[in-house]
Write a protein that binds this DNA or RNA. Structure first.
Length: 409
DNA sequence: CGTCCACAGGAATGACGGGCGG
DNA sequence: CCGCCCGTCATTCCTGTGGACG
């Protein structure tokens, strides 16, 4: 009857009741109509920018909060409403949203800003000062109140210093017909340590702090979104509760909560289940974590992979740095790669530890020195799955460590 | 109680590659 | 387009150190 084994797959997919109504709603760049539990922040931000409707410059604002606390969403929400209000009142207001992780140099920031006000600049070739001047002149002649949102501003500061902010906070002194306001958004609460105090004080004329969501608030958010994203009755309340609890445990990250929900839906869909339950969410958590690890593993440098492989091959649960270095040495010979020094090796271990791919702990063994006890944090099957694809590393998966002469026991 | 192991991890420096600015 | 500068990776040299052993 069936011509093709795929027919079953496709037919099933089409015939069974769809879980998802609109997948887009669960993506983190989706901007919902309401932002539950952020009413205070919305009002505060709204009140702060409101003066532009009467053609007055608004204060610079600094927004703090960890990832997934709704900073970006609130900023975009308020500004888009402001824009339509401004049209209504005929106020000359413009705003520009920039993500500094993408627009990550002084030049690119000014170039984007210029483009936003209709001044065309080449994407390279000019000096920063030149672009700055063109932006300044263009802005002044446009006679607008210009609000710029610098999202993830911490990445820009940490990479390039606060020079650009200094320029931007002082630009108003040289403008006669236009005014500029800055909304800075930072994930890092300690950002002011990196800033010149003068820059910081003029940048944070107003400050808004976004507290992490608690489990209850996350549950409400997920509930709202699930009504839009899933069909009626295709997700259980307890699944939502679990997802909120898991995300709340991880610094109240709404982004993570939404990811959990989306992946849980995909898991259920693939199983052909009609309703999303707790187990799907737990499975989703595992799957997200696994993907994170697999991604991390794939992107490691050759030597970091060799380090992990050494830990993997030396099946001891508490190997010391020295033991692993010896084995790593053997693997390098095997591949004909020149080996790194033990000093460098040590920092690779620390990096892998920070990524959660290893567990390394300094211990003292008294008379027998001071070292790190290292064990793998990644399940052996994942390491195998990832490394088997690489034909150089794949053949080392069955390498048997030489029992070295100094193997004392 | 001092010694001394087996490293940890900081500082300075070099090699390299890629983007910026002229 | 080319030189310069800067960030990253790696090496060299170094000082520091918790605690079992004698």
């Amino acid at each position: 009857m069936k011509q093709n084994l795929l027919d079953d797959v496709f037919d099933n997919f089409v015939r069974t009741k769809q879980l998802f109504k609109d997948r887009e709603v669960l993506r983190h760049d989706y901007l919902p109509n309401t932002l539950p539990h952020r009413e205070d922040q919305i009002k505060l931000l709204g009140a702060t920018v409101a003066p532009v409707l009467k053609n007055a410059r608004c204060s610079n604002i600094f927004i703090y909060g960890k990832t997934g606390t709704g900073k970006t969403a609130v900023a975009k929400y308020v500004l888009s409403h402001l824009e339509s209000k401004a049209k209504e009142y005929g106020a000359s207001v413009k705003f520009c949203y920039l993500n500094c992780r993408i627009t990550n140099s002084e030049y690119r920031v000014f170039a984007s800003l210029s483009q936003n006000i209709g001044v065309l600049v080449p994407f390279t070739g000019l000096s920063v000062g030149e672009v700055y001047d063109r932006f300044r002149l263009g802005l002044d002649s446009s006679k607008t109140l210009f609000i710029i949102v610098l999202d993830e501003i911490d990445s820009l500061i940490k990479n390039r210093g606060d020079g650009i902010l200094y320029e931007l906070t002082r630009i108003n002194e040289t403008l006669s017909k236009s005014k500029l306001s800055i909304i800075g958004i930072s994930n890092d609460l300690r950002l002011k340590d990196f800033l010149d105090p003068r820059v910081f004080s003029s940048l944070s004329e107003e400050e808004i702090v976004f507290r992490p969501y608690n489990a209850n608030e996350l549950r409400n958010i997920l509930f709202e979104r699930s009504k839009l994203s899933f069909n009626e009755g295709s997700i259980s309340d307890s699944a939502i509760s679990i997802a909120s609890a898991l995300a709340a445990a991880e610094h109240g990250d709404a982004r993570r909560a939404l990811d959990l929900l989306r992946v849980a839906g995909e898991v259920a869909e693939r199983n052909g289940d009609k309703i999303i339950i707790d187990d799907h969410v737990r499975e989703a958590e595992k799957r997200i974590e696994q993907n994170r690890i697999i991604d991390a593993l794939k992107n490691l440098t050759l030597h970091s992979k060799l380090v992990l492989l050494s830990v993997y091959l030396l099946k001891k649960s508490n190997a010391t740095t020295g033991e692993i270095y010896d084995l790593y040495n053997e693997l390098c010979n095997e591949l004909g790669v020149c080996l790194l020094t033990q000093r460098r090796f040590g920092t690779l271990i620390s990096e892998l530890d920070a990524m959660g791919l290893l567990n390394a702990k300094v211990v003292s063994m008294g008379r027998y020195g001071r070292t790190k006890k290292i064990r793998s944090d990644v399940s052996r099957s994942i390491i195998k799955d990832v490394f088997i694809i690489d034909n150089r590393l794949g053949q080392l998966l069955d390498y048997k460590p030489k029992s070295t002469s100094k193997d004392k026991k």
